Structure formats: C-alpha cells, structure tokens
Amino acid sequence: MKKPVTIKEIAKKLDLSFSTVSRALHAHPSISLATQQRVKQMAVEMGYEPNQTAIFFQKGKTFTIGVILPELAEAFFAVAMSAIEDIAYKRNYTILLAQSHDDEEREKLLVEKLKTHRIDGLLVSVAKNTSNFEHFEQLKKSRIPTVFFDRIPPLKNIHYVACNIENGSVEAVNFLLKRGHRNIGLINGPTSLMASGQRKEGYIKALQKNRLKFDPSLVVNCDLTEEGTISALETLLNHKRKPTAIVTFNDYVSAFAVKHSLHKGVKVNEDIEFVSFANAPITDYMAFPPLASVEQFPAIQGQKAIDTLLDLIANKDGEEEQAFYKTVIEAELIERTKGS
C-alpha cells in the first residue's frame, strides 16, 4: 500500500521550507499568490491529500455530530433523522448515528463511545427505560453540547426541543368527549418518560374542564411492546367502567390494541373508538386506524434540534453562563376522514 504524500516531500521537490509549503496550502496571506499556485499544482501532481485529523485538531473541531435514537425503524425517528442529516450535510458536518434500542445500558455505552470519537455535539432522544441520567451529566464536564428532542429526560438545566404533548392530549380527549364518550381510557407509556406524564396531565385537564371526575384506574401504563399493550388493554376491558373510547400512547400501541380487540370479538369503532399520537404512516395501512392522531412534527423537531446544537457548538467558547434553549412545538390533532 502506497504511503500518503507528505508536506515535507512537496517541500523537498520544490526546494522550499516546510512552513512555506504548509502556509501556501492554507492560502496564508504571507505567501505570494505565485508560490501558492506552484505549491498547489505540485500537491495535485504528487497526489497529496490533507490530513483531516490534523486540520480538525488545529481548528479544535471534528465537524462530527453524534445522534442517539431509540429506534430508527420507527417512522417518527426516521423522518427526524432525515431532517437532521439534510442540515448537517449543508453545514459540512458528518453524523455518527447510534440506536439505543430502548436499553439504558446500551445508551450509556453509546454516550461513552461517541465521546471517544471527539464529537462536537450530541443529539439525543432518550430510551424509554432510562431512569438514571448521570451519563448525560458527564457530557457537561466534557464540554460536549447536548440537545434532547422528543423524548426528554426529567432534568432541569438542559437544552431541548419537544412537542406540546399536554395540549395534544387535551385535544384528543376533547375530540372523544364531543363524540359522546364519557368513559375514556388511556393506555400510556412508561412512567420514566416525561411524555407519559404530559399525556396524563392533558387527559386529566380535559376531563376536569368538562366537569368529569378523573378515575386513575382508567389510566394504565405499559412498556410500549405488543405484550405490554395487550396487558394494559385487558385491564381496561375488564374494568367495571369499561371504556367506550381509548387514547393510546402512539400509533403502534393503537395498532396492537386494535389487533387484540378484534381478536377478543370487540367491534372497533362501535364498541370502542381509538385516538392516538404520532400520526405515523402506519395508520394508512391499518384496517381500523385511530379516528384521530396527534401530529408531533418530527421533521420540525429534528431541524430545530440540530439548529440549536450548531448554535451551541458555534458559541462553545463564549460566556460560561448561558440560557438553556427550551423549544416547544404545538401539537395538532389530525382527524381521519372516511376513506382516508
């Protein structure tokens, strides 16, 4: 394998000093344009390629951003990732993408590995099972700017971009109340997720605004798996106040719940109506999609998250005391029209 051409070799060929050739390659004003042109021409002829590691070390940046997602297979994260990559590409940044697969230990390991790659910053949507967030606190000590999006950890001094899930939950419940439902269940996500708390708060707020009593036993948490959803649904189906409508954590949970309801002989959209979150493409292929789903705008979340991170990277050497970016995007309930 041929060794890469060095600046010393170019300097020897042109009978110039190492520093002159180095400055000429970087278009330093102290070097005449004629010399710059001569050096660059020789560099091309000899097949010289700049040592990117050395350049990055000089600039104090690697122009690399880490992204940790729970599951790229989910449409929400795939859309968000596309938006992140588009902006990174335009700003000459490379993305190092990793998936936690909703595993806390794997997430911790990924944070450590990305740190060793000298990333300039990190974007994270936390795993549903993460309960200890010390690994993110460590990033502050390493001065690696971090922006969370969609799944936000319950920490105070962080930068984040999120959707207004609470208002989306209010809209979802109001939609069902207008359809005449009074016994409304909620299949929620893990209690470790802030988004689960926000869904519950919106659910309670909507009921109370309509002078309905909140029954905590109609809210069942699950781990977002099919098995977990089935268990939560069974709890609601066996409830003394069997719900006539159910709000689900997301469209995947809705799909699991609908599938099991049909298996149990429940007439979906007659005995029970479903409303969900995410407005994912999966609903277009469901025989019984949720009647409405809360749009959480993954592309906008992704764009705003990386824009925020790039601002933080640019101002990394600025003032020690800085405000924390807290961007909230309004959710929107999307009702499905018949035949759509």
Rank of each mutant, 00 (worst) to 15 (best):
G318M: 06
K2W: 04
Q138I: 07
K240T: 14
S30Q: 15
C163T: 13
I165L: 05
A287P: 10
K8Q: 10
V126D: 00
S231W: 09
P243Y: 02
L218K: 04
I165V: 15
N188C: 07
L291H: 04
N188E: 04
V294S: 00
K13S: 09
K128C: 10
K267N: 13
Q37W: 06
H117L: 11
E227A: 15
A11N: 05
V124C: 07
S192I: 09
K242I: 13
G228W: 02
K178S: 06
S169G: 06
V126I: 15
M81H: 02
V79I: 15
D86R: 11
Y325M: 14
A245L: 02
D103N: 14
V266Y: 01
N183M: 06
I152P: 03
F277C: 06
D317N: 12
K61I: 12
A27I: 04
A331F: 08
T248C: 15
Y160P: 02
R241S: 12
L237P: 01
K200D: 11
F133T: 02
A305I: 03
F57N: 08
F77R: 04
K141E: 13
K240E: 13
L310R: 04
A34D: 11
K61S: 14
A314G: 13
Q138S: 11
T20S: 05
E330V: 09
G47F: 11
V44F: 04
P154T: 08
G185D: 05
E134M: 05
N157H: 15
E273C: 09
A54I: 07
I84H: 00
S19F: 10
D251L: 01
Q198E: 13
Y325C: 07
L312S: 06
Q296C: 08
L312I: 12
F77E: 03
D150V: 01
V161E: 07
M194T: 05
F297L: 11
P281N: 09
D15F: 09
E134P: 09
Y89D: 13
Y160I: 02
V268I: 05
K316M: 10
M1V: 04
D102I: 12
A305E: 01
K259Q: 11
F136P: 00
M81Q: 15
A195K: 05
S231T: 15
P281D: 07
R179D: 13
